[in-house]
Design a protein around this nucleic acid. Structure first.
Lengths: 166, 166
DNA sequence: TTTATTTGTTAGATACTACTAACTTTATTT
DNA sequence: AAATAAAGTTAGTAGTATCTAACAAATAAA
């Protein structure tokens, strides 16, 4: 059992992530900055910070700026990694429009389990850091999506390696 | 603009999906069945059905069983397709434990855009319906995940086809 | 330093979702 | 048909998350 398990909600996770991102830009994390970043009104930010503060995930004294605790930072990092992995998959593998991919990632980042994230991360590493560059099959997929049928040339090559080697 | 756009929530989408699934099993869609299926109490079901009924997504007369309207059925189908695509990706591509994949799909199904779903569906079709069976690279990924490094044999073959053909 | 502006906060309202407890209707037994 | 059980409903409560309006504190300008 994880001794530092906080049951955060999607909403609170969004706040933690936003705090980490703003902080990463060497900008002071203020209520106003969070309000703009998350497109919510300032009283909503204050209410969220109160909860996060009670849960020991942020430090926030009245009228001063916000800091993540180590626990809060850990959660924020996890959410951010989910976000990046999902966005990367959508953009770099599926070739989804970056704007849509970003929006989808923002919503899905709250739903991906650690187990799946780990696999997805490895998958992206395997495909995108391929020593031979963009794998042939990924080009084949883009052809397939564009033309609605498989590329004969790629298929022939695929076949060539699929059988003799086994 | 979509003339039949209902802003449903995750929760209401879950109800629509469950109705479609129960209906697909040729079982009467009752409050009790939905209550069991979604693991919520019956008053919650009644409240949800009232909203869906007001939005014209289900037909539900007091004390009788539930039916999807065409509009409701369309939304339910969309959610179900998202669910299946996500689950299939997690299980068949990433090799995530089926139980975890199912849970993740249940949550993520509310967050995937139509654009991404279309791409994901095509991707799965491309990979899983490959005429040559499970693609070599997918085996390569599983090796990579298990051993933490790429399979030399697969890489050599990959290299062989990546360059001469281009 | 007084004034004005920005920033942060509180209080109160609304919407969503689920719950329990109590009640009504329908279906099943006896 | 009366009694019992099951299914469905209503009313009222609670937690989450958001909003507006009004107010307080801190900062910047005059």
């Amino acid at each position: 059992m994880d001794s530092t398990a906080f049951r955060t909600t999607s909403s609170l996770e969004d706040y933690l992530e936003a705090i980490a991102i703003i902080n990463g830009q060497d900008t002071k994390v203020t209520v106003t900055a969070l309000s703009k970043s998350l497109k919510v009104k300032k009283p909503s930010v204050v209410a969220a910070l109160k909860k996060l503060s009670c849960d020991g995930l942020v430090i926030h004294d009245r009228y001063s700026d916000v800091k993540l605790t180590p626990a809060g930072n850990r959660i924020a990092g996890e959410i951010y990694r989910r976000h990046q992995a999902l966005r990367s998959f959508l953009v770099n593998i599926l070739n989804v429009d970056p704007k849509i991919a970003e929006e989808d990632a923002c919503r899905m980042e709250h739903s991906l389990s650690s187990a799946s994230l780990e696999k997805l991360g490895k998958f992206l590493e395997f495909v995108l850091n391929c020593p031979q560059g963009e794998p042939e099959w990924l080009k084949g997929f883009n052809y397939f999506f564009e033309h609605g049928k498989r590329d004969e040339r790629t298929m022939a090559k695929c076949q060539r390696i699929s059988f003799p080697g086994n």
